[in-house]
């Protein structure tokens, strides 16, 4: 079996001596970074501008209106923006926790047990990658309507738990990180299958689970189509749908631009913070997947 050895992230022995500067690669990457940071830095600066400054001062000149913009945003429709933020945390956090749990145990089972129908179940679950979200979102809405659950938190939370790619990743981690001999030894000691999963497999899978959690958290946080279709009451909106309605209401009223820009800026902060603090897991996972592929 391929997965008996513990994989090690293959480190590159970086030579300790200073190498010469590669002007081309460094230059290309710096240009790329400027391109990606440009709109983000613009929205941060623009959020500090007052209504008048937004259209008059030069693009990257900081303004004086940040506090009043924030006050306006939080006053908008009795603070519905806060609610959008809380809802998003709930959808993304709750959905990602459930999704990680389901993906982990499914991937582990598909990797570590042989049983009739394994190939079929794997192909069914993974085949979901190819199903366009539109084929799902509209009938999901209709079915939730029939069950009386459309326009509820459940209607956004439940359809996002099953995530084929996470199951695929969990299967790869399990193959790579859990030596079959360890499970075998546990069985000889009389441990039950659930206990083996909880006490032997889970600790070994933790880094992979963190990555699956992050992927799913970001995917749900960024999702627009599903909540846009499912929800009608703006008290249950996540940020993406909320910001869209803010734009749809304010596109023709430049006086509302500050509100939209400040809202966009605030909506970036939680995810970028998570993203920067969890750097380690973005990398572990992806290289873990890459080594096996």
């Amino acid at each position: 079996m391929a997965a008996t050895a513990l994989p090690r992230t293959r480190g590159h022995a970086r030579p300790s001596a200073r190498r010469p500067l590669g002007i081309v690669p460094t230059g290309v990457l710096v240009l790329g970074a400027i391109y990606t940071l440009f709109p983000v830095s613009w929205v941060v600066v623009a959020a500090t501008k007052s209504k008048a400054e937004l259209f008059s001062t030069s693009t990257f000149a900081p303004g004086t209106g940040l506090l009043s913009n924030l006050a306006d945003l939080f006053a908008y429709r009795d603070g519905v923006f806060w609610l959008w933020l809380l809802n998003t945390v709930l959808y993304a956090g709750g959905g990602a926790v459930l999704s990680t749990a389901v993906s982990t145990i499914s991937g582990y089972t598909l990797a570590k047990y042989s049983f009739p129908g394994r190939g079929l179940i794997f192909n069914l679950l993974i085949g979901g990658i190819l199903v366009p979200s539109v084929v799902l979102a509209i009938p999901q809405y209709l079915l939730f309507s029939k069950a009386g659950l459309a326009d509820t938190y459940w209607s956004v939370l439940l359809p996002q738990i099953l995530h084929p790619y996470s199951i695929y990743l969990a299967r790869i981690y399990s193959q790579a990180a859990i030596p079959g001999s360890l499970l075998e030894a546990g069985r000889l000691d009389g441990a039950g299958e659930w206990r083996l999963f909880r006490q032997v497999a889970l600790p070994l899978l933790t880094p992979g689970m963190a990555t699956i959690f992050l992927f799913q958290f970001v995917a749900i946080w960024n999702n627009f189509l599903l909540p846009f279709i499912m929800l009608g009451d703006d008290h249950r909106f996540p940020l993406t749908v909320g910001l869209y309605t803010l734009l749809a209401a304010g596109a023709n009223q430049p006086s509302l631009y500050n509100l939209i820009i400040t809202g966009t800026m605030l909506s970036l902060i939680p995810l970028i913070a998570l993203f920067l603090t969890m750097q380690r897991y973005w990398r572990t996972d992806l290289s873990g997947g890459a080594v096996k592929s």
Binding site: G32, A33, P39, V40, I272, L274
Partner: peptide, 19 residues
């Protein structure tokens, strides 16, 4: 530069389009 170029992954499509 790697972190900077990866950063937009953490930006929702709606927010990116708005910016």
């Amino acid at each position: 530069t790697r972190i900077s170029i990866f950063l937009p992954y953490a930006v929702p499509g709606v927010a990116a389009t708005l910016m």
